[in-house]
């Protein structure tokens, strides 16, 4: 997609909200994958009405696009070793981060997982930035046979983990990071309503006191001892130590 401003301003883990023509629906939020030379790209799978129509739009069709939206990954401190942990299309959060880490000469490892060899996405673009990619597949058809979190456990520990992928993977990654005492930032996904933070439709439970939470006082009869944060506007990036996995 061509947009000078978005391509220039996009930061790691930010997204755009697209109004897909020919659908009634709220905007489709998609993570910004690559961004350079006045153009940016998004990764998505044809899944529902919006993604199907988006995939079949004629080239050159103008599209209403709000962005870049959301917060961003925080860079590692000087000398910290970083590991990017990407599951499936979650890799979309990482081209910009990998680019920035490369430019900062940060010691970076990329672990990229998929169901099988055929469903690996994003490998070539990340490799083109100059990274060796550690591939994991659920079926063992290429690389490490198992999940990206299993792979991370089996590797030498790093100082910062960056995660994006399906909820089960993020949950496992957060558990590992919290148990191991490793700093971990994850980019989360939810069904968004407004994509701007107005509708409160995409909240994630966070610990009380998390700076991204509402900070509202606790109601007298409220038994739940946590807070909510909006994935679309307070995230999409949260610290593993802040996110609660209730279910």
């Amino acid at each position: 997609m061509r947009d000078e401003r978005i391509a220039r301003d996009a930061r790691a883990a930010q997204y755009v909200a697209l109004d897909v023509p020919g659908t009634f629906s709220v905007r489709l939020p998609l993570g910004i994958w690559t961004a350079r030379d006045g153009e940016f790209s998004v990764l998505f799978q044809e899944w529902g009405d919006r993604t199907r129509r988006l995939a079949h739009l004629p080239i050159g069709e103008p599209l209403s696009c709000i962005g870049p939206l959301g917060n961003q990954f925080s860079a590692p401190s000087e000398g910290q070793r970083a590991t990017i942990v990407a599951g499936g299309l979650g890799v979309a959060a990482f081209w910009l981060l990998a680019r920035d880490l490369k430019a900062a000469r940060a010691h970076t490892t990329i672990v990229l997982g998929a169901r099988s060899k055929l469903s690996i996405v994003g490998r070539d673009e990340l490799a083109a930035l100059g990274f060796d990619i550690d591939i994991c597949t659920d079926d063992g058809s290429e690389g490490f046979h198992g999940s990206v979190v299993d792979r991370v456990r089996s590797r030498p520990p790093s100082d910062v983990l960056y995660g994006c992928g399906p909820p089960g993977m993020l949950r496992a990654l957060c558990r590992y990071a919290n148990e191991a005492g490793v700093e971990c930032q994850i980019s989360m996904e939810e069904n968004f309503g407004c994509s701007l933070g107005t509708c409160w439709g995409c909240v994630v439970p966070v610990r009380r006191g998390c700076p991204q939470g509402t900070g509202y006082p606790k109601a007298p009869r409220e038994i739940r001892d946590y807070d909510f944060a909006r994935v679309c506007a307070d995230g999409t990036v949260f610290r593993a130590s802040d996110v609660l996995w209730l279910h």
Binding site: E190, N191, G193, C199, W200, G201, C202, V203, V204, Y216, P217, K218, A219, P220, R221, E222, R224, Y226, D227, F228, L246
Partner: peptide, 12 residues
């Protein structure tokens, strides 16, 4: 009073 609201999913 403050209200935490419903659990997710909240929209469809």
């Amino acid at each position: 009073q403050p209200r935490l609201g419903n659990e997710m999913p909240r929209t469809m």
